[in-house]
Amino acid sequence: MIKRIIEISNPARLSLKNRQMVVDREGFESVSVPIEDIGVLILDHSAIAHTQGILAACSENNVAVLICNARHLPGAILLPIEGNSLHSKTIAQQAQITEPTRKRLWQEIVKAKICEQANVLLNAKVDNHPLPAYVKMVRSGDPDNYEAQAARIYWQRLFGKTFRRDPDGFGINILLNYGYAVMRAAVARAIVGAGLHPSMGLHHHNQYNAFCLADDLLEPLRPAVDRKVYELCKRLPDEPALTPESKRTLLETLGVDCTINGQRLPLMTSLHHYAANIRKAICDGQKRVEIPAL
């Protein structure tokens, strides 16, 4: 069963009762949801109160809890310290990953990302671009930086020549930022469930980033968000904004069907297969890595 993504954006009190998350709002009847059914919980209001018990239950059930900032973008993620029975062994093997394995995995991730970007442009009826050729040219570790070369072409073809990707921007950028942040939390959740540590990346490395591996594995999934944002922009008559309706549409991204290991699965479910494949490549030397494809 696909896990639920729940966003709370009004004043509320969250508590735990009989393994259920109980949401109390003034003037409304209480609502309860089984903790085991939740995959991602998004808290987007400064007047939300919660008990320690609900956070502990979320941790025990590998629920990613996102706390949003004043711009309504996820600013913090709460994840369990241990999500797998072989956690210590897996972490030790992850820390000893060889450079050839690291570069090979990054090559596969970049190829998958560019391939998905090409599919988004195809869906948007944009042709005459070199992205399909770039996929075949990516070498181990992507020393030629085809990821960046593809991105420059991709953004201008998708959103126009004046568009610039800005993590601090508004309009289209704020929709992308929200979608990426939710996807990042879901990826981090799957990583912890596979016994890996989200801070130990393959390509991304920053001592101040606790989610380097999540950012690595997120890359080929970004185009799924891009497609949703493109579809939203086509429907919206005015400047895109982060509204309850647009957030609802972006959260639907985790429910879209994708292909992995020869199966069609919801993207949220496929993330666990994806993380497990990465763990096998790191710990068991598995050569072939399956990445979700839309």
Results as ranks from 00 to 15, higher is better:
Ile2Leu: 13
Ile2Asp: 12
Arg4Met: 10
Ile5Gln: 14
Ile6Ala: 04
Ile8Ser: 05
Ile8Asn: 06
Pro11Gly: 09
Arg13Trp: 14
Leu14Gly: 06
Asn18Tyr: 12
Val23Pro: 01
Arg25Gln: 15
Gly27Lys: 04
Val33Met: 08
Pro34Lys: 06
Pro34Asn: 01
Glu36His: 08
Asp37Tyr: 03
Gly39Val: 01
Val40Tyr: 00
Leu41Pro: 00
His45Gln: 07
Thr51Asn: 09
Gln52Pro: 00
Ile54Thr: 04
Ser59Asn: 08
Ala64Met: 07
Ala64Gln: 04
Ile67Lys: 10
Ala70Met: 08
Arg71Phe: 13
His72Asp: 07
Pro80Arg: 03
Glu82Trp: 04
Asn84Phe: 14
Ser85Trp: 08
Lys89Pro: 03
Ile97Val: 14
Arg102Ala: 15
Arg104Trp: 10
Gln107Trp: 11
Lys113Met: 13
Ile114Asn: 01
Glu116Pro: 05
Gln117Tyr: 07
Asn119Lys: 09
Val120Tyr: 01
Leu121Tyr: 03
Lys125Trp: 02
Val126Tyr: 07
Val126Thr: 10
His129Thr: 08
Ala133Ser: 13
Tyr134Trp: 11
Val135Asn: 09
Asp142Arg: 09
Asp144Val: 11
Asn145Tyr: 13
Tyr146His: 13
Glu147Val: 01
Ala148Val: 11
Ala150Asn: 05
Ala151Lys: 06
Tyr154His: 08
Trp155Asn: 03
Thr162Phe: 11
Phe163Asn: 02
Phe163Cys: 05
Arg165Met: 07
Pro167Cys: 02
Asp168Met: 11
Gly169Met: 13
Asn173Pro: 02
Ile174His: 07
Leu176Ala: 08
Tyr178Gly: 00
Tyr178Asp: 00
Gly179Cys: 14
Tyr180Leu: 11
Met183Ile: 09
Arg184Ser: 10
Ala188Gln: 02
Arg189Met: 01
Ile191Lys: 03
Ile191Gly: 01
Val192Ser: 01
Gly193Arg: 15
Gly193Trp: 11
Ala194Thr: 08
Gly195Tyr: 03
Leu196Cys: 12
Leu196Arg: 02
His197Leu: 15
Pro198Ala: 13
Ser199Leu: 10
Ser199Trp: 06
Leu202Asn: 04
His205Ser: 11
Gln207Leu: 12
Tyr208Leu: 15
Phe211Ala: 05
Cys212Ser: 14
Cys212Trp: 02
Cys212Thr: 02
Asp216Trp: 00
Asp216Glu: 05
Leu217Ile: 00
Leu218Trp: 03
Arg222Leu: 13
Pro223Ala: 04
Asp226Asn: 10
Lys228Met: 14
Tyr230Met: 04
Leu232Ile: 15
Cys233Ile: 06
Lys234Gln: 15
Arg235Met: 06
Leu236Glu: 02
Pro237Tyr: 08
Asp238Gln: 13
Glu239Asp: 14
Pro240His: 06
Pro240Met: 10
Thr243Trp: 10
Pro244Met: 13
Leu250Phe: 08
Leu250His: 03
Leu250Glu: 02
Leu251Asp: 11
Glu252Gly: 15
Gly255Tyr: 05
Gly255Pro: 04
Gly262Lys: 12
Arg264His: 14
Met268Thr: 12
Ser270Asn: 10
Ser270Gly: 13
Leu271Gln: 02
Tyr274Leu: 00
Tyr274Ile: 00
Asn277Val: 02
Lys280His: 14
Ile282Met: 13
Gly285Asp: 09
Gln286Glu: 15
Gln286Lys: 15
Lys287Asp: 11
Lys287Leu: 14
Arg288Phe: 12
Val289Tyr: 05
Val289Leu: 15
Glu290Ile: 01
Pro292Thr: 06
